[in-house]
Amino acid sequence: MHEQQAQHAKTQELLFELRVADVMRPQVICVRPDQTMTELRNLLREHRISGTPVLDGDEVVGMITIADLIAFLVSGESEARIADKMTRNPQMLFSDQLLVHVIRQFDETRFGRFPVIDPQTHKLVGILTKGLIIEGMLRAMERELKEEEIRQYRASHIFEDLVAEYKEIYLTYELIGRDFDRAGKASTQMKRNLKRLGIRPDIVHRLAVASYEAEMNAVIYADSGVMEFRIAPEEIFMRVRDRGPGIEDVARAMEPGYSSAPDWVREMGFGAGMGIPNIRKCADKMHIQSTPGIGTTVSVRIFTGREGEGA
């Protein structure tokens, strides 16, 4: 579910990342103003295009489209020069413009295609249509998807791919006390990492809850802390060490509903005395070591097993 969200954010980012040059069709076909409409008809048919820029030497002087051709055919004239039927002084795009800005131009004008020129030389370098934008976006999305697939594949095979007698991955996060702006960030990133590593969803979920509660405890009560994760093929070990006030009575802190949180913390919805019970519920093994005035260390072990993988 979360991959989809990330993917959607990606597609929105694409509009801000892709430039006209990335999706335009490099121009190869153009016509001169002195050519005839009959020549245009043959050219459009031959190349299966519905419009093209009109070039006088190096300069774009107009756009001529299939709509102009139809109007000409309906009028019953026997022949005409392109110069007399084209749209003069067309709006043009620069090849280095971001797609997000260009899309507006399509919306605000009734034009279906724009000539693209080089921002320095002002020479024609391509043509852009809505269709080309969509094609370009789809190509880029596919690239992104493949890259994420490869990332996930690599991550989930890391234990198989590396050869050693003992294999473990260590990930560490620094925690800053009372920084509610960053609070939860380490756990959020860790959840993403675990999914990439191909850890079973139920285990990811248990670790997410345990790590969030441990992280919040450190953020609420301590000045700073360190969150460490050790991921091995059979188990995930988490240790959160904080430099905080410590817990006077660890046994009581394990009881649901016991909390020493100040009022302002409770107002935010923390400090309900459920943090440590939640951690215990999610852990296969939990250990709390605390020294008043020095700090607290919460250690959690979750056995990942090897059975039921990919569930």
Binding site: G184, S187, K191, H205, V209, M216, G269
Partner: peptide
Amino acid sequence: ITMQKHKNIVAVAVMKS
């Protein structure tokens, strides 16, 4: 459903999918 409107509700929503 909640009254809480501060930033940390987002992390909770992510962690609990």
